[in-house]
Write a protein that binds this DNA or RNA. Structure first.
Lengths: 157, 157
DNA sequence: GGTTTTAATGAAAATGATTTTCAATAAGAA
DNA sequence: TTCTTATTGAAAATCATTTTCATTAAAACC
């Protein structure tokens, strides 16, 4: 199904080649779709958008490509507890990108926020240190998420 | 399959009756199993333990009963991101019970902790208030979780 | 105690997101 | 252009959980 190669972002092409991977149309389109969106897209969402560009690309390929992009740290996979993964483009440095999610449990709308990020990082640091020591854990990651009702969904009730 | 009734905890019997529900052996056993354990059990785990007491109880009933107990606020359902729900007995008041999880991504071991709970509650309160105002969300719940490697899994690598 | 109503049950089938299999295709090296 | 093998799509497989439906048994009512 692929056509020609080497169009998409140079760096992307380079990063792929670097690990013996190939640049294909499917990969360009999937990355493009998630990159253009500022929503938190499910695999299905991505699939639908990809199809609008090229009807020949299968859902399986979308899943595989999303996995690949997550492993390349170009996307992050989020879990909002509704049984389907969502994907979000990682922009800038890890520091820039650090944020949390506010999830509407009705319509699944998600807002990214960075409020109190300083205080939070400080508290997390303390907590991580204490937990590492107390329970002999090496902490690698953390998850903070708020759940509630967005404006529209609250009014609808 | 049930036998006689009215043995299990009075209050449990009472709470069930209160909403037109029935006290069955399956429900007693499921509650008993989760109550005795201080692990975070999956439905399968509960099923296996239940079977040791009564081979006639099906997996479907275990799922249904876990749902019921969660709705009755006797259990809480946790999601550690491995695609299966876990269940934990809620003890004492909501205040007493407030804690977070430290999850080993290798062996899935989970530790409950309450360290820095005061500071955390304070920060969460501030954050909740700010987010409510800023994004017009009514916040109902939050999730804080740390991921890492436990002692044993770190050494094994 | 026996009857009756209907909630609860178990087995099997259905669901839904994701993964695997496998033969066909095409990226990119030679 | 040829050749190697990564990538692909379609279909089947997985796996946790839910639904369906006919059967059974709590517990309310004689």
């Amino acid at each position: 199904m692929p056509r020609r190669c080497g169009k998409g972002p140079r760096w992307f092409c380079g990063e792929l080649r670097g690990c013996g991977r190939r640049l294909t149309e499917a990969r360009e389109i999937v990355l493009g779709v998630v990159d253009k969106s500022d929503e938190h897209l499910s695999a299905e969402d991505v699939f639908r958008a990809v199809r609008r560009v090229n009807r020949g690309i299968g859902l399986t390929t979308v899943y595989r490509t999303l996995d690949l992009l997550v492993n390349m740290n170009l996307l992050s996979r989020c879990d909002f507890g509704d049984g389907r993964a969502r994907y979000e483009r990682i922009r800038g440095t890890k520091e820039d990108h650090h944020h949390h999610h506010l999830v509407c449990t009705e319509c699944k709308k998600v807002v990214n926020y960075r409020d109190f990020i300083e205080e939070e990082i400080e508290l997390l640091g303390k907590t991580e240190k204490a937990l590492s020591r107390k329970f002999n854990f090496t902490i690698r990651d953390h998850l903070i998420q708020f759940y509630g009702l967005c404006d529209k969904c609250r009014q609808r009730d």
